[in-house]
């Protein structure tokens, strides 16, 4: 599946696409997204619903990524995070921005419309009074994100997209583990995630 129609795409086209992704450095991810893009050209009306489902799944993930970006912004701007934890939060926020950018690009390539970030999010700001509170809040979001991607990977029809989603899942799981470590908790509490 992943080599479908690749021969019709020029190297220049690929460079153009990659340059359009700006700061994205996960080349494997970008390549996988390209594979997804190629497949769109072969999708006929009979498979349109399948593509629509993948768009819905990616848009759901995009919405969660946008919320994570906002949550890390809240944490970074709270004044509660001290270095090096602050640097870590900014780095993780950068990862979520890369995920969001890649997901939005892919939704467009699939013919969909990326969901837009909300103007405001309802975060439990009244409960965030210390660095530990912020870390715990971020850890909860990251754990939720892992579960969301676990729920998305099996139902993505395009296997290359599923691979990209699994790649993001791995990143979010690392975030969760690091945040738990910073909280003094067991960073990897279970052998399996759900």
């Amino acid at each position: 599946m992943s080599d479908v129609n690749l021969q019709t795409e020029s190297a220049a086209d690929r460079r153009s696409f990659l340059s359009g992704l700006g700061k994205i450095t996960l080349s494997a991810t970008a390549i996988a997204l390209l594979a997804g893009q190629d497949r769109v050209g072969l999708i006929g009306s009979a498979k349109a619903q399948t593509a629509n489902n993948d768009v819905a799944i990616l848009n759901a993930a995009l919405g969660a990524e946008q919320e994570a970006i906002a949550a890390y912004q809240l944490g970074a701007a709270s004044g509660l995070l001290q270095k090096p934890v602050l640097d870590l939060a900014v780095q993780f926020q950068g990862h979520h921005k890369e995920h969001a950018s890649a997901l939005a690009t892919t939704v467009k390539k699939l013919g969909g419309t990326p969901v837009e970030a909300k103007k405001t999010y309802s975060f439990p700001t009244q409960k965030l009074k210390s660095q530990e509170d912020v870390l715990a809040f971020a850890a909860e979001l990251e754990k939720g994100a892992v579960s969301a991607y676990l729920g998305a990977v099996p139902i993505l029809t395009d296997r290359e997209l599923a691979r990209v989603a699994a790649s993001i899942l791995g990143d979010e799981a690392m975030h969760w583990a690091v945040l738990r470590q910073a909280l003094g908790q067991n960073p990897v509490p279970t052998a399996f995630l759900a």
Partner: peptide, 17 residues
């Protein structure tokens, strides 16, 4: 514990994704 899976998009009190 199962509800933790829902927390990427939902919460009890606030609408999210």
């Amino acid at each position: 514990g199962i509800y933790q899976r829902c927390l990427a998009c939902h919460s009890l009190q606030h609408s999210r994704s």
